[in-house]
Amino acid sequence: STVKVRLGHLEVTLHNVSEEDVRELRELWKNGADEEDLRRWLEEWKK
């Protein structure tokens, strides 16, 4: 499914993403990950 995730002022649209992935991303964000960390996660996730 396609999910729009809003993290601060960063809005990311993920395609074919699982609930688990979204949860993981939100956890990262809650734990103080900055945009760099999130971008890195997204790069990994896209592979």
Rank of each mutant, 00 (worst) to 15 (best):
K4R: 11
H9Y: 09
E27Y: 06
D34W: 04
K47A: 13
V22L: 15
K30F: 10
D37S: 14
E27R: 10
E44W: 06
E11Y: 11
H9L: 12
D37M: 14
V22N: 02
N16F: 07
E27W: 08
K4Q: 10
V12A: 03
R23I: 11
H9P: 08
V3E: 02
N16S: 05
E20H: 12
L28Q: 03
R40G: 07
E24I: 12
T13F: 05
G32P: 02
W29N: 05
K46V: 14
G8L: 03
T2L: 05
D37L: 13
E24V: 13
L7T: 02
W29Q: 15
E24Q: 14
L25R: 00
L38C: 02
D34T: 15
R6F: 14
A33T: 05
W29E: 14
D37T: 15
K46A: 13
H9D: 15
D21L: 08
N16W: 05
E27N: 11
V5Y: 02
E24D: 09
K30P: 02
W29G: 04
E44Y: 07
G32Y: 05
V17H: 01
E20M: 08
L38V: 12
L25G: 00
A33Q: 04
L14N: 00
V17L: 06
N31Q: 11
K46I: 15
N16M: 04
L38N: 00
G8S: 03
S18Q: 07
E36C: 05
L38G: 00
D21F: 12
E11I: 15
N31T: 11
D34N: 13
E19K: 10
V5Q: 00
E20D: 13
V22S: 04
H15Q: 07
S1N: 14
W41A: 02
L7H: 03
E44C: 08
L42T: 03
K4L: 10
S1G: 10
L42D: 00
W29P: 00
H15D: 05
N31Y: 06
L42Y: 14
W45E: 01
S18G: 07
E36K: 11
T2E: 06
E19Q: 12
T13N: 03
N16V: 02
N31M: 10
D34A: 12
G32A: 05
T13G: 01
S18K: 11
S18V: 04
E36M: 11
E24K: 12
A33V: 09
V12Q: 02
E27A: 10
V17R: 01
H9T: 14
E36L: 09
E36Y: 08
V5W: 02
H9W: 09
G32H: 08
W45T: 03
R6L: 15
E20I: 07
N31E: 08
N31I: 05
E27C: 09
H9M: 12
L42V: 15
K4V: 15
G8N: 06
L38Y: 05
V17I: 09
E19P: 14
E36A: 12
E43G: 03
W29I: 15
W45N: 04
D21A: 13
K4C: 15
D37W: 05
G8A: 03
V22K: 06
L25E: 00
E44I: 08
H15A: 05
E24F: 09
W41S: 01
E24A: 14
N16Y: 06
N16H: 09
W29S: 08
R26C: 08
